[in-house]
Design a protein around this nucleic acid. Structure first.
Length: 314
DNA sequence: AATGCTATCAACCGCAGCTAA
DNA sequence: TTTAGCTGCGGTTGATAGCAT
């Protein structure tokens, strides 16, 4: 829904006496209506001419942006699903800030939306981890913490009962994590992450993880990335316009496991999500992550109350 | 209730690439 | 070959809603 302007802001045109002055700022319902009707009759493109012909006191660029990011009928609104978030993380690790390219693989999502998501959610997490969002360390943090948590969340969504009671077997084995359900859907998942607490709703890293991480951090002052063995890249063609996304019955490489297959049989298309245990367990060097905040001591000291990797905020 | 802070997201800006004249 | 106009992309800004104090 458009945010109709009730007041004149400084981003609107300053002099209302200037009939020919270009309008700026939020679009009104009338403008939206004009644009929609014009495109319905004449199609999109040739935006400068379109703006004039439609009687809009807007630049062509502004019309294009409004249409592509907001008014176009196939725009999907609302929060990004865990599947979409996972795909964004993976595609960003592959392509970087190629927002439009990433958006091509998320039907109904715009580059602007994905860019905003990245800046407001992902980069926020990077700041809290005190690591650069584009760095390899951050990518590994994403893969160690965030992606497994997303998968866990997706798993919860696939269960008939959407709380943790549906998870009947959840064990920690050192750096690995297994969860299975007793439902007919037979979900079995394993990750190589430290001690994920199934009851930790608000914080991905629970207190035991915090201890683990603190210990590792304190015993390794010269963290090495060498034994990290992630990044089986998604096999998505650079030129592919079709979305190899989670809505399809695709099998593709993911950074956590060699392969996972996806059945499109539930709301998210993830009912049949299955992770084969890796032949050789990949491990995550947590000592590489500097959880020290700027001058306030170890972030992990009170991790139970931390919002670090808070999936509810994603 | 008032104020300040933070998160979100729509919209703008500048730049680069493309194309037609 | 040059140039002007158009389009698309990525970075950034600013309005505002919601939350905390």
């Amino acid at each position: 829904m458009s945010i109709a302007m009730s007041t004149t802001t400084k981003r609107e045109f300053g002099n209302s006496n200037e009939e020919n002055e270009l309008r700026r700022g939020p679009w009104t319902l009338e403008e939206d209506s004009l644009l929609i009707q014009y495109i319905a009759r004449h199609g999109e493109g040739r935006w400068n001419m379109l703006a004039k012909s439609a009687g809009l006191k807007r630049t062509g660029k502004s019309c294009r942006l409004r249409w592509l990011n907001y008014l176009k009928p196939d725009i999907k609104r609302g929060n990004l699903s865990p599947q979409e978030q996972l795909l964004i993380l993976e595609l960003h690790s592959k392509w970087g800030n190629r927002w439009s390219k990433i958006a091509q693989h998320l039907p109904g999502r715009t580059d602007n939306e994905i860019k905003n998501y990245w800046r407001t959610r992902v980069q926020k997490q990077a700041r809290q981890l005190n690591i650069e969002s584009g760095s390899k360390r951050f990518l590994d943090a994403v893969k160690c913490f965030w992606m497994p948590r997303l998968l866990q969340k997706m798993e919860q969504n696939t269960s008939p009962i959407s709380d943790h009671s549906s998870i009947t077997n959840m064990n920690n084995f050192g750096n690995s994590f297994e969860a299975s359900t007793s439902t007919n859907n037979s979900i079995s998942t394993s990750f190589n992450v430290p001690s994920i607490s199934p009851s930790s709703q608000n914080s991905f890293i629970d207190a035991s993880s915090a201890n683990h991480l603190s210990t590792m951090s304190s015993t390794n002052n010269n963290p090495s990335l060498d034994f990290l063995q992630f990044s089986q890249p998604l096999e998505i063609s650079e030129n592919s316009k079709s979305a190899p996304n989670v809505l399809d019955n695709n099998v593709y490489n993911c950074p956590i496991q060699e392969n996972y297959s996806i059945d499109d049989t539930n709301n998210y298309g993830f009912e049949g999500l299955y992770f084969d245990p890796p032949s050789s367990m990949e491990t995550c060097d947590f000592s590489q992550f500097d959880f020290q905040t700027s001058g306030s001591g170890w972030m992990l000291d009170n991790m139970a109350n931390s919002t670090l990797w808070n999936m509810d905020a994603m």
